[in-house]
Nucleic acid binder design. Structure first.
Lengths: 342, 342
DNA sequence: CTGTTAGCGCGTTCAC
DNA sequence: GTGAACGCGCTAACAG
């Protein structure tokens, strides 16, 4: 009579169980539960009661099979451990979670083989779309496998301009940093950056240089490239003070570099922000709010980036794919390292 | 003839397409592709060729519908933004990704309503199991909805002892910290902790106190509870030096507190580790490797915790559910803040 | 308004 | 060795 129960308790109720209990046919039960018309309100009620009693939960697999759409998307990160992936994930998950789509999380760990493996699995699961999250803003190769569903690249753009990519506006971020310092009355601004092999570093330099020029200012020394670390920040700041004691502001490659710069400045008796203003990038809270003084930083708006990618994917699923790279503005978060009075 | 193509190019190939192209029946194609016996090797080859030519990818929805198992699991985080969730996710994703199961990521954002919403969606998608990742090690209420599949709680145990939970061994972590310092020859050890409302803080204190007693040592001052911040670390360290100048080691509530302690010690002319050894918890790399000197810290092995949760869920899906709370050992990562010669 | 039928794509009996 | 038939759970056509 009843089909074999699973290893754990009673088999989960199916629509046919609900129908039986309510004394109607399956299709009527389906219509009732899905709010279609042409069903007597009394019948509808009976069906709902039966469903509640049986704790009925519609089988999305069956529904997806029929509809041809699974209501799922894949979130493929190249490197979850990187600190930039997470906020993007959160934003995307948020944008989707509000609706009816669920998100598959896949971490390729920087391995192309694993990436293909994951893509295959996602295709097999019939995801309706795919977001590929990079771990740096440098362009990345497009997915190796042909995928029949829309793909949106987030953070790291695809090398193929025909693909749709959404990235933070690092040029604008550099510009934003300088404009803020200029607005604060700074005129002798140095730039201690991070690893020159990252396009993020170079792009911000481009924006910063543009803004300096527009303000009619000369940079203090050359851009100092190094690594994205506190120790580089400390070392570079020491050299800077030595060679350019007149400096009154430092733009730093990221918040870690900025932390190092802050430390060295303090140890050299320079007060921040009175003597020297300091500004970082990334707005990584654990770094920016723990420092003395708290650190002004340019926030790349990653959560919003994730949301934007999700929305773009939504659109692509419904309509036509956008093409090319879209940049999203960053956001300046002002703290005490540039302005004392807030 | 061919059914209507989707909005994007040709309809994805189905098993029946493959069969047709290979000139066999669907069932033969199925057997061939799934490596069942009783199929001529030549036929098998033809089927594989057809599948490759059509880029055939089996529909997991259909397969799952038939098998009664979807090959998916839900990863439900209470707060993705917390820095502890991510490594656990990574570990779990890793353990699953190796096999054939895909992972649904859901972030409840600390909201019970949203949590229920997600659980409903996961149930509807017929996940084979569920991992609930907490954002602190304090016990959390069990899932509000009855779920027919196994659930494993990770990091934050369920309040219900009948549930299966896996958490880091914070008592052992506290013990580990003291034992290391004692082994380094320290005898006047103080403890600057974090927020006393967290069981993690209290548990580590328990372990530390036990280990101190066993070593025949008295703690230096009371445990100083405050917040998990650098500024608390700075403030508490200043008080400590003032009241107990004889201190030769400080166990800190986490790496942020430890960073603050390091700063204050340096500014008071104490050398680390020569004069005072400092040790943190969490082993958050951006903090531990950026400091001067680099910070010894107890790593909670979160990635391993995630993997363990995944394996436990695997077992629970196949066999019987384990019950109760299992603790996983932490791991000491020795850097220069406790030992100069490495 | 309600019930019957068909089929989404696949794996698994069972005959042949 | 191969193929026809059935059903997983559900929704969308129809027919009554």
């Amino acid at each position: 009579m009843t089909r074999p129960t699973g290893s754990r308790g009673a088999r989960t109720a199916t629509l046919s169980d609900v129908a039986k209990l309510a004394g109607v046919s399956v299709s009527t039960a389906s219509k009732a539960l899905n709010g279609r018309n042409h069903v007597h309100s009394q019948t509808r009620e009976r069906v709902f009661e039966a469903a509640a009693q049986l704790q009925f939960s519609p089988n999305s697999l069956a529904r997806g099979l029929l509809a041809g759409r699974s209501g799922t998307v894949g979130l493929l990160t190249t490197d979850l451990s990187g600190r930039f992936s997470l906020p993007i994930l959160m934003g995307a998950e948020d944008a989707f979670g509000a609706g009816q789509v669920s998100v598959f999380l896949c971490d390729a760990r920087g391995d192309a083989i694993r990436e293909r493996h994951h893509v295959q699995a996602l295709v097999s699961r019939r995801v309706d779309g795919l977001i590929v999250v990079g771990s740096s803003t440098d362009p990345r190769p497009k997915l190796a496998d042909r995928v029949d569903v829309p793909v949106v690249y987030a953070y790291a753009p695809s090398e193929d301009p025909e693909d749709q990519s959404i990235v933070p506006d690092n040029v604008g971020a550099g510009r934003m940093a300088i404009e803020h310092l200029v607005a604060c009355g700074r005129t002798r601004i140095a730039h201690i950056s991070g690893d020159r092999h990252y396009s993020a570093a170079r792009d911000r330099d481009v924006g910063a240089t543009e803004a300096l020029t527009e303000a009619g200012l000369e940079p203090v020394g050359e851009v100092a490239y190094g690594s994205w670390t506190e120790s580089w920040g400390r070392a570079a700041a020491a050299m800077l003070i030595d060679r350019h004691p007149e400096v009154d502001a430092v733009v730093c490659g990221n918040d870690q570099v900025a932390r190092g710069v802050l430390d060295t400045l303090r140890e050299h008796g320079r007060t921040v922000p009175e003597d020297v203003a300091v500004l970082g990038f990334d707005n990584w809270e654990v770094l920016t709010t723990g420092s003395r003084p708290q650190l002004t930083s340019v926030d790349p708006n990653l959560e919003e980036l994730g949301r934007a990618a999700a929305r773009a994917l939504f659109d692509a699923i419904d309509d036509e794919h956008d093409r090319g790279v879209r940049t999203l503005p960053c956001r300046l978060v002002i703290r005490e390292s540039t302005v004392r009075d807030r």
